[in-house]
């Protein structure tokens, strides 16, 4: 088994009367992409901030690279990088000046020119920070998080507000970072993103950890049934399909027929049956359960507000 780089035990954090994190425990392994998912207000940011030495937990223990984020704050910050959900730098600083400034805080640094190029910000290097668009700012803070050549990179809501193209290029970057041997801890409320990117996902709701596993395990355990859909004419007998083994339910609303099936092998039988019935298969589609369904099944709610 590979070594744990982050160990959190029974973490609790209040803000006045809000219990933001309510007894969370988990460990992150070296070299993995670890996702923290959950709706807004679930406690993702607070959890990350307690780990990345930005906040002191009320109780519980946090160990990062063998260090205590409260006592060894500066030493730890030299070895990690944090992209905050919300932060700013001075409006009238040019990007290259900010990169130089923050480079001076670390003993070993990555080449900021390469980072800006990689994040598609090279043409902007002489611009003032205030002249960047929201998406450019977001990407810039990813570059800032990487500048100190971190062993662990924390990315908090790293793609919210980004256009699809930027999201895809940051996903690629995250995988490259992992391939370089870094550990990535990210938070997102996009379930598809967590599913595509993460080796393991922790689902957080109301400050509590509700599930933790690889996306595929979570889906096979909590995802529910596969859905099969096809368009039908006015007269369609769904009854004969419901007798097939593995078909859990049939819903025929007159235009679309939706089946829930518990095993993928059943799909073959459905197709054969439809063909025998003379039903066209043009509109036939299969929907596998996703992390979105996992969240819904575990918490009883949609992840979006």
């Amino acid at each position: 088994m590979s070594e744990n780089v982050v160990t959190v035990q029974n973490l609790i954090k209040h803000y006045k009367d809000v219990k933001a994190v309510d007894g969370i425990s988990f460990a992150v392994k070296r070299g993995e992409i670890f996702g923290i998912v959950g709706p807004n207000g679930a406690g993702k940011t607070t959890t990350i901030e307690c780990i990345a030495s930005m906040r002191r937990a009320d109780s519980g223990s946090v160990d990062v690279l063998g260090l205590d984020p409260v006592k060894d704050s500066i030493v730890l910050k030299r070895r990690i990088g944090l992209q905050q959900q919300e932060s700013e730098i001075q409006d009238r600083l040019r990007l290259w000046e900010a990169m130089e400034l923050f480079s001076s805080f670390y003993d070993t640094v990555l080449d900021w020119k390469a980072l800006l190029k990689q994040l598609n910000l090279w043409e902007k290097k002489d611009s003032f920070y205030s002249a960047l668009s929201g998406g450019q700012k977001k990407r810039f803070f990813v570059a800032m998080a990487l500048i100190g050549d971190p062993e662990i990179v924390f990315l908090d809501e790293f793609t919210s507000g980004l256009d699809p193209q930027s999201r895809i290029s940051i996903w690629k970057l995250v995988k490259e970072l992992r391939d370089q041997g870094r550990t990535i801890v990210l938070s997102t409320h996009y379930m598809d993103e967590a599913e595509k990117l993460c080796d393991r996902v922790a689902i957080i709701d109301h400050g509590k950890l509700t599930a933790l596993d690889s996306p595929s395990n979570l889906i096979s355990m909590h995802g529910g049934h596969i859905r099969v859909q096809f368009d039908v004419g006015d007269v369609f007998d769904g009854e004969s399909l419901s007798r097939l083994e593995g078909v859990e339910s049939v819903l025929n609303d007159g235009n679309v027929c939706t089946l829930e099936v518990s095993a993928s092998s059943t799909i073959v039988e459905i197709v054969k049956k439809l063909d025998a019935m003379g039903q066209g298969l043009d509109s036939f589609r299969i929907e596998a359960p996703t992390l979105e369904d996992v969240f819904l099944n575990i918490t009883g709610r949609e992840v979006r507000d």
Partner: peptide
């Protein structure tokens, strides 16, 4: 700097 969150960004770096 404090109000805008600029100090918060500094805080994420190893600087006192």
């Amino acid at each position: 700097y404090r109000e805008k969150g600029i100090l918060k960004r500094f805080r994420a770096a190893p600087v006192t």
